[in-house]
Simulated assay, not measured.
Amino acid sequence: MVQVKFPQMGTRLAAKQGWRFDSTYDHKDDNGEPNPFVFVLGSGKVIAGIDVAVRSMKVGGIRRVIIPPSLGYQNTSQEPIPPNFFDRQRLFTTIFNPTRRANGEGSTLGTVIFDIELVSVRHP
């Protein structure tokens, strides 16, 4: 089990002038602390670029990762995605826009930028 935070610069979409679409700092627990994003490394439930980046990080480390479409969102069921439906819809409308892809923008539409802080790793 891996816990990461996406600091205040958060998660951005490169194609929309760096549109920031999420940050774990936007989602607080009852104590006002950011809720970390939790996933199982290698489960296939997160985008491949996050999985690859976290594997080479140390707990406490912070890294900016530019994830190309080939390692990014391939479908709308992959994590991490914003819990707010409007932002989620806007994100996927941008990434999977067939008209813009047909116009040759496909290589940049799905590029995402994550600032990642590795909070903890728990081995089963």
Rank of each mutant, 00 (worst) to 15 (best):
E33G: 01
H27W: 10
G42T: 11
F96L: 02
D29I: 06
Q78A: 08
L118H: 02
I66H: 06
R122M: 12
G61M: 06
F92V: 06
I67Y: 01
S56L: 05
R90E: 13
K5G: 02
Y73R: 02
A15W: 08
P98H: 09
G10F: 05
T93M: 08
P82F: 06
T111G: 02
D29G: 05
V59K: 08
V4N: 00
K28A: 05
D30V: 10
E105D: 14
F114Q: 04
I50C: 03
T93Q: 13
I116C: 02
G110F: 00
P68G: 10
S23W: 04
P7M: 09
P80H: 04
G18K: 12
G49Y: 05
F6C: 10
A48L: 15
T99N: 10
S77E: 08
F92L: 04
V112A: 13
F92G: 02
G104W: 07
W19L: 14
V38L: 00
I95A: 05
N31S: 08
H27Y: 15
G106F: 01
I50V: 15
T108V: 14
E117Q: 15
G61C: 02
K16C: 04
Q8P: 03
A53T: 05
D22W: 12
I95V: 15
D26A: 13
F96C: 06
F6G: 03
T11K: 04
A102D: 11
P124F: 06
V4H: 03
G49F: 06
P98C: 10
F85I: 15
E105C: 09
H123Q: 15
F114G: 01
G61R: 02
Y25E: 13
Y73W: 05
T94R: 04
V112D: 00
V59M: 03
G44W: 02
I113W: 00
A53D: 00
N103I: 05
F92P: 02
G32Q: 04
T99D: 15
R88H: 05
R122I: 14
T99L: 15
E79G: 12
V2M: 10
T11A: 14
V4Y: 02
N75V: 04
G42Q: 12
S120A: 15
V38Y: 02
V121F: 09
E117T: 06
I67P: 00
